[in-house]
Write a protein that binds this DNA or RNA. Structure first.
Lengths: 114, 114
DNA sequence: TCCGTATATACCTGTCAAGGAATATAAACA
DNA sequence: TGTTTATATTCCTTGACAGGTATATACGGA
């Protein structure tokens, strides 16, 4: 698993992370809430832990998993440069002008929309 | 390609998106800046377009690609519930208490760290 | 000590996506 | 019209990953 983006590409893993927002959970609790086989849950948790999305606590035979936010912050940080496109702390017009600008001067007449 | 998350799981596609933040680009410009073969660029652009991340304009033989922010907003929205873990608009202590709470009462003594 | 519960791991298999090479399409230009 | 430039598409191969099944490990309790 190369990057945090690949980790959250898997829908079941995203579901697990969402579950853990409210509170820490044991493997069995996750298993029941998401209706998935236990080995599947364990394997996804393994991936999530290796990538730093979760950490676990031992409670007798159970393992309690909880969220670790750092990798998610990384994704949040990657999104930052794109936010100007929907959160105009700069002016919307300026943005539009950027699009119409170098380094791609259109040759002859203006290009028609696809 | 099932979801927007799978689309951005691919590093080259993320690179393309990042390139398009500053301005629209032709396939050839992307190709040169990212040093990847033209068919690879075209194929990734196809995926990005099908998923709504970009749109294209025809300019003679060239196609100018530009960002469309909607799918990225979707990712941003998915992140929202997790932000409380690093952007405490609620109290940090409250969050910590949530973790220690139901629906997972620990049995006997406290669990030791992983 | 034996058993049941909870979780992790190993192995196998099918699927799918990414890259490479070749080719198709389309427009500009001589 | 033939050629060059720009981009898209097709075909093929390969590797990675997810799921299923079976099994291993570890702990608590009778």
């Amino acid at each position: 698993m190369e990057s945090v983006f690949e980790v959250i590409a898997e829908p079941n893993r995203r579901a697990i992370l969402s579950l853990l927002v409210s509170a820490q959970q044991s493997v069995g609790e996750i298993e029941r809430q998401l209706r998935m086989p236990q080995p599947t849950v364990s394997k996804h948790l393994r991936v999530l832990r290796d990538a730093g999305f979760v950490e676990s606590t031992v409670d007798a035979q159970r393992r309690l998993y909880r969220l670790k936010p750092e990798p998610l912050q990384e994704i949040d940080a990657w999104l930052a440069p794109f936010r100007r496109f929907w959160a105009p702390h700069l002016d919307a017009l300026e943005r539009h002008l950027d699009q119409m600008e170098e380094p791609t001067p259109e040759k002859g007449r203006a290009g028609s929309r696809k």
